[in-house]
Design a protein around this nucleic acid. Sequence first.
DNA 1: ATGAAAGCGCTAACAC
DNA 2: GTGTTAGCGCTTTCAT
Lengths: 363, 363
Amino acid sequence: VSQRRVTIRDVAEKAGCSIATVSRVLNQSGPASTDAAERVLAAADALGFSFNELGRSLQSQRSRTLGVIVPSLSNPVFAAAIEGVQAEATAAGYQILLACSNYDEPSEIQAIRTLIGKQIDGAVLTVVDPDDSPALALLKAQGVPYCLMFNQPETPQPSVGVDNVAASRMAADMLLQAGHRNTAFLAIRFDGSERARLRHQGFSARLLEAGCPEPALLEVGDNPQDLDARLGALFAAHEGITALYASNDMLALAAIRAVRALGLRVPEDVSVIGFDGIAIAEMVDPSLATIATPCPEMGRGATSQVITAINEDRTPAATMTALPFSFRTGGSLGLAGAEKPADERAPVRRRTHPTTPVTKHGS
Amino acid sequence: VSQRRVTIRDVAEKAGCSIATVSRVLNQSGPASTDAAERVLAAADALGFSFNELGRSLQSQRSRTLGVIVPSLSNPVFAAAIEGVQAEATAAGYQILLACSNYDEPSEIQAIRTLIGKQIDGAVLTVVDPDDSPALALLKAQGVPYCLMFNQPETPQPSVGVDNVAASRMAADMLLQAGHRNTAFLAIRFDGSERARLRHQGFSARLLEAGCPEPALLEVGDNPQDLDARLGALFAAHEGITALYASNDMLALAAIRAVRALGLRVPEDVSVIGFDGIAIAEMVDPSLATIATPCPEMGRGATSQVITAINEDRTPAATMTALPFSFRTGGSLGLAGAEKPADERAPVRRRTHPTTPVTKHGS
DNA sequence: ATGAAAGCGCTAACAC
DNA sequence: GTGTTAGCGCTTTCAT
């Protein structure tokens, strides 16, 4: 079945010259007579030659390949970010080697090992714990430039994301404006996502400042089966909850479903706000109020930092680039104790975060 | 910044032996004295050595890398399939090199060229036109084993998907059972997706058999902005449409939104059925009635065929593996002319396709 | 059991 | 302008 692939040597033979000349012509990396060039081009074309990038990479010590690790592909935020990475990488002539960690550190380490073995020139990734990550340690030890996406490390690290604390304070503000005081926070396991933790932090802080009770906390797994029951228990344990903030849109959507399964209405009985701003959130009914974040831009930004670093033979700056976010209101947000959603009465104003990227570390 | 990576030579030196011995020990590919083995292991460990897979691949002529090309990542079906590919590939010790074609043939060709250049051992992909694909031609010419996902080629090709015609006949059946006779079919451009074309074909055929008028057809782009207007025009041009079948769930969701924007209710005025069975479809309100397909299994199945072929040094069989599908009812499907959704009156029974994979070619 | 050496496909000095 | 040659990191005969 597998015919031997045509190599530079075959082209040289057919063109009647040495492999050096072929290389020079095809790479335009040195002098060649018009005559020789023509023969080489013709031969390469006739043979359907294309370079074996393995040999090339081995020699040049650069693979033109970027490693990408995301926790999961089922959450559209990561898919959206990867599209950004793809676009940027392709434009710069890089390919991407993709791996999923499933929010699991051992898988993450294994993945990064393999990627390093394949001699990636750089990495763009979202890690489980950016402040104590064996994967990142490996990358540093090998001198592979990397940039995080989504992650918001405390320690200075190259990263592109949003200020989760500020964004969540904004979410709290919107709820406060709509008259909510008794809230709940629904999060994926904190130990697998520092974002969820920071979102909780910002949200709680703002509510406490406003003299509200601490939001009731519910931590769940990646793909919660028993959300109905657990949410029911939470509502039973905490009387008078009128609003729920979820640490991401997928969870928010699941929450809406669960809330309804409990016989409650959204937003009349419970308002729901999500985080991320995935496309689907705008297509459902009621539309999901959420913190809209620029996912493809995170991918693009992180990728461009890495590529620039590679080109300049250095490491990306160990700072977090905070991208702008905005609050996108939706039918899932209503006034506390009202029978109508807020935006059918006094529409909650759409607020946008300053568009200038702020550079800051940690939270 | 970039310290020289440690090579097998460094390990050999530290262990006081030749690189051949290091290779044999680390790969367990030949004899070695317990003593030498220990020294090698210790040295490798101390140095933090790991193989440079480039050198290894170049020598062994296998990269342990699979190329993956999907039309887009924004549609969760492809993300889900990739998760399946990932799982299967990782389990077999393969990495995946990912590219997106954006439903565009030139990009597809470019992507496959690069992948081939990187010496992928096999490819798993969804192409624009499986029956006349330059990308597949390239793969064949190079003797790279591949298997399609989702695609349902007319010509015999290795592929894992569902029988789109049969599935769409089933969708038509469900609509007929609910009393619908005047329908519309909403599709992404036929020229970018033979699936959409086949789905239309099966749907129309069944309706015509039942003596219904041909469904009104609306073809739109990947991410239609003007869906509201175009759907409005369609409804205006064709009186009495009570149901809409969309060629995929994302489109179906967008359609529901558009229908509502037109002041119509789902399902009271218009029922909607989608295709794919993405997770979100179950989370929205009303839940989306759809043809549920096993996306991760398509990725897994296609990948396992390719890997098996690689291991046996042959090409995957040029046949389509049709995976089972089922109709998943939902709130978006109602009885024609009724004020209540069908499943709140006489629930539409959930039908499942025979679970035995059928092998068949073409449509 | 171990090492020397050839060579995978390529690039880049360095001659000529 | 062109060819020869020495590797890039590795595996694998083939001697020893």
